[in-house]
Design a protein around this nucleic acid. Structure first.
Lengths: 150, 150
DNA sequence: GTATCTGCAAACCCTTTGCAATAAG
DNA sequence: CTTATTGCAAAGGGTTTGCAGATAC
């Protein structure tokens, strides 16, 4: 059976909440899902604008909470003074490995985290809803670059 | 052998970098290490002020990067529009389990993460420098509260 | 003495919001 | 028709910065 498109999912979300489907929202969502990359509001805004599509930043800022609530995107980390997001609908849950030098990001899955979640539920009595593992380091290239410098 | 105090560590850090030890910096650091709790700039500022000590927020903002660089504190998460920190000097590396309802925080250690780090080094060729696991969920009390409501 | 540090206030930047016009359902 | 959504511009709130005076070394 074919997976629902993100736009379909979003339409259903809107309907269920008495909200409306607009050209602006469609354009923003299409752009978010057009690339695999993470994004931030400013680059998303500029990318859309450069295509000649008129959009205001306010509309993006107003849309993001809806997309998060609908389970289509999530925020990944706060850096350089602003939040960074990624679309998650249709993706396997994954974690991020980031190079602190060149900022390259590798994604990986860590099944072990589920074991940790279960242990935490047992130990603290929490109901675990989400986990986020963020690993930082030096990628092979930057590692080499730094090795040569010293 | 006795562990160096955080102030000693900081003095050495300053010396090594041609920076100066001031009453203001001392007061801020003492307050940071006075409690086990996490902190944010605003509450730290108010706490110090309430003790009758005159400090400006600018001095706190200027000090934090030094403390991070010296390995005395780290930022833990961005929430409610601002960063939250904790002192790490003299503490075992730990992760955070947070209740999304009441915001309570439990700390835990996860030795398994070191295995993940090793796997990542092998798989991606990165030099791993740090990892941060943040788990969110409902604490026993909030879980119960919500169960009763529905 | 010289360079760093301080407080203050202004500047900055990301994000949110009030408003009047527009558009979805 | 009614209510949600839009763009704009202004406001908000955390953080940074320029500056002149104070202070560590």
């Amino acid at each position: 059976m074919r997976k629902k498109s993100e736009l379909q999912v979003f339409r259903e979300y809107l309907q269920k909440n008495g909200l409306r489907y607009t050209k602006e929202r469609e354009n923003i969502i299409k752009e978010i899902f057009a690339t695999h990359d993470h994004f931030d509001v400013d680059t998303l805004y500029l990318t859309i604008r450069r295509k000649g599509i008129h959009i205001s930043k306010a509309s993006i800022y107003r849309l993001l909470p809806l997309l998060i609530d609908a389970g289509l995107i999530q925020d990944v980390f706060f850096e350089d003074g602003h939040m960074h997001y990624e679309h998650i609908y249709g993706h396997e849950h994954h974690c991020h490995l980031r190079c602190i030098e060149c900022r390259k990001i590798e994604e990986f899955t860590a099944p072990r985290l589920n074991d940790i979640d279960r242990e935490l539920e047992e130990r603290f009595g929490f109901k675990i809803l989400d986990h986020k593992l963020e690993v930082k380091g030096l990628c092979p290239e930057c590692r080499e670059k730094i090795r040569k410098m010293t």
